[in-house]
Design a protein around this nucleic acid. Sequence first.
DNA 1: GACACATATTCCCATATGGGAATATAAATG
DNA 2: CATTTATATTCCCATATGGGAATATGTGTC
Lengths: 113, 113
Amino acid sequence: MARAATTSDVFNALAEPRRREILALLADAEKPVGEIVAALAEGQPSISKHLGVLRKVGLVRVRRTGRHRMYRANADGIRPLYDFAKTFEKYWTHQLLRVKERAEEKEQKKHRR
Amino acid sequence: MARAATTSDVFNALAEPRRREILALLADAEKPVGEIVAALAEGQPSISKHLGVLRKVGLVRVRRTGRHRMYRANADGIRPLYDFAKTFEKYWTHQLLRVKERAEEKEQKKHRR
DNA sequence: GACACATATTCCCATATGGGAATATAAATG
DNA sequence: CATTTATATTCCCATATGGGAATATGTGTC
């Protein structure tokens, strides 16, 4: 048996760094393909293919508007990843410290604007 | 460019379901290879190779004892996965979160005038 | 040393890949 | 309709895969 298809599940789809970047880009607002291409500085066909993979595993949704296709992230689709990782949370070392650190970072970001 | 190596990072390593199973098995206690082979009902070479991948990306540690090799999970290694997923937490359509958001919106509206 | 046991490595192969180039499809515009 | 714009699809190929079989390596035991 060969390696599983990238479209077989969320884990395989998100193994590719570009696709994680794309998903992050689409988290806050829907964007047309061209904007993603410009943001990631990669060929348009490449981006379109990545979007196809994300679509197949349900991580993004599309809406057609004229000749544009507006993509947006479907954050719920990431839960399998999160759930898996979360089962290891209790084994992390310095857990309390790290949580505290991240909370503080967040606080700073909020106040920085 | 072809697909990235499974050993290139945690995301690629954990795209394979067997490797996630192995990691879950090793979360609570270290185990010799044979025990994993028995638990997952798969060929020993296959398991050894999976362990090799997990080792290379730092998700497991090994300890040699006689002719056994005791493997244990290194839970800290999963944090990249967790951190990535966590950035989408706020977008989840979870009931409590929604209630909270609506409360905040209301609050803002009240103060906006 | 001869052997059994535990694990890793090598060899094999069908399969999916990601990117670039070229091309196709579709919609707006003149 | 011809052309431009936006996006998807097809074709190409070097590359890594996961599993099984066979083999190698290492370690206890007699």
